[in-house]
Write a protein that binds this DNA or RNA. Structure first.
Length: 847
RNA sequence: GGGUGAUUAGCUCAGUUGGCUAGAGCACCGCAUUUACACUGCGGGUGUCGGGGGUUCGAGUCCCUCAUCACCCACCA
């Protein structure tokens, strides 16, 4: 035998992948219907985790499936420079070396991170290979590749020219540790107990959580209808503060909730989003108090140089001394924004940044979503995306970090309002027409450049010798729910804006792989599962099937190693089916035309036909798990447990070989390595790849003959049950006048583990509605069967009652479809026949 | 405050336009060493489909309501 007793993935996987890659199996053939997926690029700096296993498994199953359907498939791999993410990882390393990013210029930092990423980049490429991903490596794209940077620039330029980009001084979510701004979506809000301080504030008493921003107060606000304070509105008041008196204006604004605190709010336009808006409404003075490093500036007087938290304490102390502190509510909870990376409290900070006007980009996106032009899996994500797009604010794309694509904009050193677009970002200073321009030191938000990913990777609108651009738009965008808003929404908007086409036909959102106990996996908790050791232990196919099995779109689900183990067993099952068939092939080399001969031959072909339809339907609708279960049950329950067992008494070698090949092709997307390994081992023609085989047609079969075997199956199960229940085996089986039972006598004897199968009658009658047959079992033993029969009788009677009730209902007869009524009648007839045979048999025991 | 999803066997979950006695895997119990496989085979049973109401001949599925949980969005001094 060529195949050893058990499948050992480790011995084959690397060679099989190399064989695929060498043969160019993953490159599109370019001459048939195209199917394309661009993989969401993983961060270039790290190792792949179990979530990547899920995402690449789903994408690869889709890709291999469409290849087997005969389509030209392109699966594009990539890597993400992941701007801020990567810089954070690198900074942590610097800290370990006792350094900080502020020891370097942005240029130095950029080149250091570049080297750092280059070191790690091979890592995940080899990991993707281990996962068996059938991607086209020649098409590998990095988010800092020239073509991606060029796209970012041309997109920025187009928006600049069309007035969608503006530079503005706005309050920005700002992390004082990383010293960069963030988009709204990047801020993590957390519930926290924040002391609420009640202060004496001129004639008012007011509540605040941020006494340290007092130095930036330029107004106090009350509700317009609040009679208590009406007389102060419009006046400018002198307020006694910790650093002496200062003046504020009293304004009336709807934003104030008269029932919260004292109904009076101090307004600090430079350091609060709401206050900023109020400031704009009332033309208030903006006074900055906090520096970019999180310390207070000269406005704070003697508190200058303190951090926000230090100053809060000190100011509260000072207020107390001056008798300005009325009380403190320690139980007040509110939600505070944090940096999602370092957990520092986000400061609203007044900054000049580049913004993209979103309304005109979002509108067309909302339109195509509402028109249902993109199919979402699950469907509900579409409405969520629409709701998100409808509430979108302008997008801050400036980041004050080094690791990213420099913004191609230069500012006139003599005229701050004079900005020019120029791609010579290698230069810090440009001189144009005698004017001096300095480059904006900022870089783009990573999501800005990655929004172009579908059309940029596929060279949309460009002359392209490889003709990859015909794969745009993508067939599928497969990704995790966490980037529906930051990425999918923006790819959609920019795709429409730049290409005029919807960038993907379908969006599939997968859920998270949670830890085994259902909690979130996290490095700090230490409950992450590293896919590589799992692959090492169980094989790549096993992990793939184990992770997709029982998982549906957007549902978070715990990782379960037992599933992986079962999937490993499934690989071994396939292996041993092949092993059996191959063994028989050596002993029995009859050639001829493959065809169904016996009932079971026809039956297995009908099952094969069903599983194929089932698999195609499910995968066309991205029901990965159900498609897998279909092939799993076909292989295990039908092919192995029934057909191969049956073939031991009625061998049809050519059909076995046909079934093996058909099964391998069907199972290949789910278990690429083991199926290809089997194929390569039994064929010895390495140019004939299973990975490139298409689904074949199903041989013709006779439905009636297939049905005959169904009946035999039922009978065999019944006999097995009786023998188990009575603890006997190898009993003699008798039948009366049945051609089917006569022709299948040997088969039934084998499958039901009987002693003999003969015409005649025994003392224990089998209550099967299709056949009159019996077992020869001594009466003492058979007596035990009475209780089994009684149970059966009760169940059957209940069933009959149910059916009769249904048929006695006139409305049912009138309103239900005729077919269904007919079916119910048939069921009742069968059930009654069955009941009678049980009753007749039972009578024997009551004597 | 707004939104979305979930609640089905001991556990993890399927159940596509309402219609065959509600399923799968695991776990569990029993039997089996028969030449593909113990990473095995055979047999076994378990559910007031979260509660309540409604529509219908018929509801796990549709509608209303309540409860619990999860996630997302907006963020109040």
């Amino acid at each position: 035998m060529k195949l050893p007793k058990a499948y050992e993935p480790k011995l084959y996987e690397a060679d099989i992948y190399a064989l695929w890659e060498k043969s160019g199996a993953f490159q599109p053939t370019n001459d048939k219907v195209g199917y394309s997926i661009v993989m969401p690029p993983p961060n270039a700096n790290g190792n792949l985790h179990i979530g990547h296993e899920l995402t690449s498994a789903l994408e690869d199953i889709a890709a291999r499936y469409h290849r087997a359907k005969g389509e030209s498939v392109l699966l594009v791999p990539g890597a993400d420079h992941a701007g801020f993410e990567t810089q954070s990882v690198f900074e942590k390393q610097l800290v370990k070396e006792g350094k900080s990013r502020f020891d370097f210029s942005r240029e130095e930092l950029y080149s250091k991170i570049w080297d750092f990423v280059a070191l790690n980049r091979d890592n995940f490429e080899s990991q993707l290979r281990k996962m068996g991903v059938s991607c086209d490596w020649q098409h590998f794209t990095f988010t800092l590749d020239k073509k991606i940077v060029d796209r970012a620039y041309s997109t920025f330029k187009k928006m600049w020219d069309e007035g969608l980009i503006y530079r503005g001084e706005r309050l920005v979510n700002y992390c004082t540790f990383h010293q960069t701004g963030f988009a709204d979506i990047e801020v993590v809000y957390k519930e926290a107990k924040t002391p609420l301080y009640y202060l004496k504030y001129g004639p008012f008493e007011l509540a605040t959580t941020r006494p340290e921003t007092k130095f930036g107060d330029t107004a106090v606000a009350v509700h317009p209808d609040d009679k208590r304070y009406r007389k102060y509105v419009g006046r400018v008041l002198e307020i006694e503060g910790v650093n002496g008196p200062f003046s504020v204006q009293v304004i009336a604004d709807e934003m104030v909730d008269p029932n919260f605190g004292t109904g009076v709010v101090k307004i600090t336009p430079a350091h609060s989003f709401d206050d900023w808006e109020a400031g704009k409404r009332h033309n208030l003075e903006v006074k900055r108090v906090i520096n970019h490093d999180g310390t207070l500036n000269h406005q704070a007087g003697r508190f200058e140089g303190m951090t926000v938290m230090e100053a809060r304490k000190a100011v509260v102390e000072a207020l107390k001394e001056k008798g300005l502190l009325v009380k403190v509510d320690e139980n007040y909870t509110n939600r505070v924004g944090h940096c999602y990376k370092c957990d520092t409290i986000i400061e609203p900070m007044l900054m000049e940044q580049w913004f993209i006007e979103m309304e005109s980009l979002a509108k067309p996106a909302i339109k195509v979503l509402k028109e249902g032009k993109i199919t979402f899996y699950p469907e509900s994500k579409k409405d969520q995306l629409i709701a998100y797009l409808q509430g979108l604010k302008d997008w801050n794309i400036s980041r004050q970090i080094a690791w990213g694509i420099p913004i191609p904009a230069f500012q006139n050193v003599d005229d701050p309002d004079d900005w020019i677009y120029d791609e010579r970002v290698g230069e810090e200073i440009l001189t144009i027409n005698g004017k001096t321009y300095r480059r904006d030191p900022d870089v783009f938000d990573t999501w800005f450049s990655s929004s172009s990913w579908p059309y940029a990777t596929l060279n949309f609108g460009e002359k392209d010798s490889s003709d990859f651009n015909k794969f745009y738009p993508l067939s599928l965008m497969e990704t995790g729910g966490e980037i529906l808003y930051p990425w999918v929404s923006r790819m959609l908007m920019l795709g429409l804006y730049i290409t005029g086409e919807i960038p993907f036909e379908a969006v599939y959102i997968h859920g998270y792989v949670m830890a085994e106990d259902g909690s979130k996996m996290s490095k700090s908790v230490g409950n992450v599962v590293d896919p590589l050791p799992v692959i090492e232990k169980y094989g790549s196919d096993a992990l793939r099937m184990g992770i997709i099995w029982g998982r549906s779109a957007a549902v978070n689900r715990g990782y379960d190693e037992r599933r992986v183990e079962e999937a490993r067993n499934f690989c071994n099952k396939l292996w041993n089916i092949a092993r059996y068939i191959e063994d028989k092939s050596n002993k029995n080399s009859i050639r001829g035309e493959v065809q169904a001969v016996t009932g079971v031959d026809n039956w297995i072909l009908s099952k094969l036909s069903n599983v194929k339809v089932n698999l195609l339907t499910n995968l066309d609708n991205y029901n990965f798990s159900e498609a897998f279960e279909a092939i799993y049950h076909f292989v295990w329950d039908d092919l192995a447990d029934w057909y191969i067992e049956a073939s031991k008494s009625e061998p049809n070698q050519l059909l076995l070989e046909y079934l093996l090949e058909s099964t391998l092709v069907l199972a290949h997307p789910f278990a690429p390595f083991v199926t290809e390994t089997i194929w390569q081992t039994i064929n010895e023609d390495s140019s004939d790849l299973l990975a490139l085989k298409q689904f074949n047609g199903i041989l013709p079969y006779d439905k009636n003959k297939a049905q005959e075997f169904n009946e035999i199956q039922t009978l065999v199960s019944e006999i097995r049950y009786i023998q188990k229940a009575l603890k006997v085996s190898k009993t003699a089986f008798f039948y009366e006048d049945s051609i089917i039972l006569e022709t299948n006598a040997d088969l039934i004897k084998k499958l039901a583990n009987l002693g003999s199968v003969k015409k005649g009658s025994g003392n224990l009658k089998i209550t099967n509605p299709k056949f009159i047959c019996s077992l020869d079992i001594s009466s003492e033993i058979a007596d035990n069967y009475a209780s089994e029969l009684e149970l059966k009788l009760t169940k059957q009677q209940a069933y009959i009652n149910q059916l009769e009730a249904r048929l006695n209902n006139k409305s049912y007869i009138q309103n239900a479809p005729a077919d269904l009524v007919k079916q119910t009648k048939e069921q009742l007839r069968e059930a009654k026949a069955n009941l009678i045979s049980i009753q007749i048999e039972l009578e024997k025991y009551s004597v």
